[in-house]
Amino acid sequence: MTESVVWLTIFVLSVFVGVEVISKVSTTLHTPLMSGANAIHGIILVGAILVTGTSDSTGATVVGLVAVVLATVNMVGGFVVTDRMLQMFAGRRKPAPPPTGGDA
């Protein structure tokens, strides 16, 4: 396999995994799920750190640092706010009966 085909393979398989793992989500969890997925794409932080760390001009470094700040806000804020939402679900009084999360 050439390298591009390897990349394409990873991409296509990831598409299927992405759809498959959330296909049974109940409506109740749409908001936390969206918010959690939102936090995951904050992983662009890794890219931001790489480009900033290899930048060779002041201008590029500054732009890179802005990207680092933005990506960190996305990632850290995303995970924290999702946890806050889910904490409330856990806070209900009865110990959860196995929720039959609707047919959505």
């Binding site: 991409f11 598409v15 992405g18 759809v19 799920l33 997925a37 992983i43």
Partner: peptide, 12 residues
């Protein structure tokens, strides 16, 4: 990571 979010996000 990006593809997972892209795919699940589109489905959602």
């Amino acid at each position: 990571g990006g593809t997972l979010v892209g795919a699940s996000g589109t489905f959602l």
